[in-house]
Amino acid sequence: MGRRRLSLGTTQETLLIPLYGRAVESRKKRPALHDAKAVEMVGSIDYDFAKFDGGRSLLGSVLRTLIFDGWVRAFLARHPGGTVVEIGTGLNTRFERLDNGAVRWFDVDLPDVIDLRRHFFADDERRTMIACSVLDHAWTDVVRESDGPYLIISEAVLLYLSEEDVRTALSLISSSFPGAEVAFDTGSRLMMDFQHQHDSLKKVDAVMTWACDEPRRIEDWGIGLRLRESRTVAEPQVAVRRALPVRYRVMLPALRWFAARKVGSYRLNLFGVHSAPE
């Protein structure tokens, strides 16, 4: 069987970067994570992944993934039978890595991505893929048929929307899932201005548009979100940091010190929904 050719939108192509990052990391002698499925998918997709080789952002994508994983693990430790929704799931394997045998899981992405996912993954009684835009309430109608509590995660997705669309998406989540936890990343104006120098993004046509210099200001939008945690990729949770290979644990303090401005321009945030939008 030949390698699978892709037909993805411009922004959707960016899903291949973290996929490749996990595959590259998995091939290392002592990886920060092991993702055999990512290695399999990279090997079966007809795409020039080699153009991303050597980029430091591949490791950054792995650290980001591990931090989001940490929030999911913490949520499932408190709510083993809760519901997790991954918006803009791409070709992520988070369910495979974190499934506790009881969680109800929804993977949401645009139709072209879900069509690609279905070549590698299948729905079952606890895992459902939904072809839908984050701006469309249809996905919330499906998810609400499952019991809470809810954790909604969106990794490297909202950055590519306008601020107006980000507000719409987050308002939809807040009004649909009172009491939920919501995790997503933000990038500062500095990050937007210098994205053309990003070692991986400069090799695709997608452009990030939403600049957010201070994640806590999202609380002022009046949509019921309250910031609980905000981290950089150099500041993983204690449990995540302890599980990293020694070389990464040694590297993180240096990264925080020598590249503080650059690292700090990109943040991973965990919010809680405390009330419905005003």
Results as ranks from 00 to 15, higher is better:
Val72Cys: 03
Leu201Pro: 00
Glu219Leu: 05
Phe177Val: 02
Gly222Cys: 01
His274Ile: 12
Gly2Pro: 04
Ser230Glu: 12
Trp139Asp: 11
Ile17Pro: 04
Thr209Asn: 04
Glu229Pro: 07
Arg247Trp: 13
Leu16Pro: 01
Lys51Gly: 15
Leu63Ala: 02
Asp115Met: 08
Ala23Val: 05
Pro236Ala: 01
Lys37Arg: 15
Ala131Lys: 04
Leu270His: 07
Glu181Trp: 01
Met41Leu: 15
Arg144Lys: 08
Thr186Gln: 06
Trp105Gln: 02
Gln195Asn: 07
Phe75Ala: 02
Ser162Asn: 09
Lys202Phe: 00
Ser57Cys: 13
Arg261Cys: 11
Arg228Pro: 03
Val238Gly: 03
Leu268Asn: 01
Ala32Val: 01
Val84Met: 09
Arg30Pro: 15
Ala276Ile: 10
Arg167Ile: 01
Arg94Asn: 09
Ala122Pro: 08
Leu110Gly: 00
Pro277Glu: 08
Glu25Arg: 13
Phe121Val: 05
Lys37His: 13
Val39Tyr: 00
Asp99Phe: 05
Ala206His: 07
Glu125Val: 10
Val238Gln: 09
Leu8Ala: 02
Val238Trp: 06
Pro245Tyr: 00
Leu151Cys: 14
Gly55Phe: 04
Pro245Ile: 03
Ser171Trp: 03
Tyr20Pro: 01
Pro31Asn: 11
Ser26Gln: 13
Arg144Met: 04
Ala36Trp: 14
Leu172Met: 04
Leu33His: 12
Glu181Val: 02
Ala183Lys: 06
Thr168Ile: 06
Ala243Met: 13
Phe184Pro: 02
Glu86Ile: 03
Arg22Trp: 02
Pro245Lys: 10
Asp115Cys: 05
Pro277Lys: 12
Leu59Trp: 11
Leu255Met: 12
Ile223Phe: 08
Glu40Asp: 14
Val134Gln: 07
Val182Ala: 00
Trp105Asn: 02
Glu214Gln: 15
Ala50Glu: 03
